[in-house]
Computed example of a mutant assay.
Amino acid sequence: MPFEALSASSSATTPTLAAIISSGPRIATVTITRVHYTHRKTLKSIGTYFVSGVTVKAPGPDHGTVERLKGTVEQSAPPRPGDRVGALYAPDTPEAGSYLGRLSALRSLPGGPAPPGEFGLLALYGLVPLVLARLSYRTATTCRSFADGLGEGQPHTLRVRVDGATAGSFHRPFPSATQSPRLAPGLRLSSSGGSRDLFHERCLDPEGLASALSNQQGWLYWVPMAEHRPEWVTGAVLVLDDGRYLCGVTPLGAAPHMLQGEPLGGPLPGPEPSRAIGPYALWHPRVHLPAAVAYAVSFLAVGLIAAGAGYRNGTLESICFILAAAGPIAGLLSIRFQRQRYLRELRRRTGGLTASVPNEGNSA
């Protein structure tokens, strides 16, 4: 939406506005002397309004001189002779035309501050992605209760210690030949006589998380399945001794090093978790550096458009708009590529498993 607002601002930079600014603009309240026509228009976003062509009486270059200017005014009601409106015009060049409307909006055209309402609207648009990011993070990394993270069945438990980071790849049920595995970061959990992996959501940096939780001890809970393949995974919850928890999935395989734990004799701790582990959402600079460059180029292009670098140069303006729109897209694609590359290297270094998810209910 800010980009769309910038596009509208750029298109408003017309030859008429440039001629008024170059000739010495003046903003004043003027009187409508004649209404030439009125057209009624309706938009879903703002409702019904009226566009009218009028002649106004405005102060001229010398004291007492009156200029008669023609212009177009948009109002919620049809104008009448004698109505007062704001006007932006050049007293020394009346033939350049005029802009009619609210004084607060007219002051922004020659370089003044934007109306407070526009700043408020821009701030509201800026809050939308922040709220969505917060809701997405909470949904991805928290669970309402331990049962939500484990699913149905007899839980198993294992005393573990956070031993490092790992990564693994996952397939959805019945993958086709064209599907590529989804890589996920994880924690390597060690216990007496073996280990077990807990794969979590990709919004968490595995090495940063493993470093922050290094040597922390707790209990891992998961529900084994009666019918499963060795490479399948099931929902799991890691609960540290200090009460923090992390939802994820753990492999169901029966490898020699993969401990199977013991059936839980009593009820699950809770029933509600205390607080989630994190946030540790920052990734390595190499994951985000190319995206940061793309965002910087996009920001520079937006700045050039706002500064009027493309005025009277359609090619330059088009290039700036393309860079401004393509920068965030290229940045997101770059983050995805770099993250996949990073997780593949981490899986190769740590010997992470390749598993497939038997059903959506058992995925983290």
Rank of each mutant, 00 (worst) to 15 (best):
G111H: 13
Y245M: 10
A355G: 06
R102N: 12
A12D: 11
A19M: 06
A133M: 14
R347Y: 03
P224I: 03
W222H: 07
F299L: 12
V66L: 11
S190F: 00
T38G: 03
G194P: 12
S356I: 00
S191E: 01
S192W: 00
L259M: 13
V128Q: 02
E317P: 02
Y280C: 13
R229N: 04
L346A: 09
T350M: 08
F174C: 13
Q154I: 08
I305S: 00
R172H: 08
V239D: 01
P271I: 09
A291I: 02
L17T: 06
R344N: 10
P110N: 15
H200N: 03
T13Y: 13
L17F: 05
G303D: 00
K57S: 15
S176C: 02
A19Y: 05
L259A: 12
R159N: 10
T139H: 15
S363V: 02
Q338D: 01
K57I: 11
G149K: 14
G126W: 11
H288A: 07
L332Y: 05
T178K: 07
A255G: 08
R26Y: 05
L6P: 05
L121E: 02
L333S: 10
D197Y: 09
R144Y: 06
V237I: 12
A210N: 03
C320F: 01
C247H: 06
Y280A: 06
L122C: 14
T250C: 06
A276M: 04
S192V: 04
G253T: 05
G71L: 08
A236G: 05
S7G: 11
R40W: 00
P79M: 00
Y49T: 06
S274Y: 05
C203A: 12
P263T: 11
E231Q: 14
R182E: 10
T38Q: 05
G86P: 15
L246R: 00
E118A: 14
G248T: 11
V30R: 01
R80G: 14
L238T: 02
T31R: 14
T55A: 07
C247E: 04
L150R: 08
R144H: 07
G186P: 08
S22A: 13
L122T: 10
L187M: 05
G266A: 12
P59T: 09
L122N: 10
A212T: 11
F299W: 08
P173D: 01
P185N: 06
T55C: 01
T31G: 14
L88Q: 04
P267Y: 00
G266D: 08
A105S: 15
A236R: 02
R138H: 06
H257G: 04
F337C: 07
L189C: 10
L343E: 08
H39F: 12
A309V: 02
H284A: 14
S11H: 10
G24N: 11
V73M: 03
R182T: 08
A309K: 02
S190T: 11
I32K: 03
A105Q: 14
H63K: 13
T250Q: 02
P267H: 12
S363T: 06
P155I: 02
Q340K: 12
R344M: 07
Y37L: 04
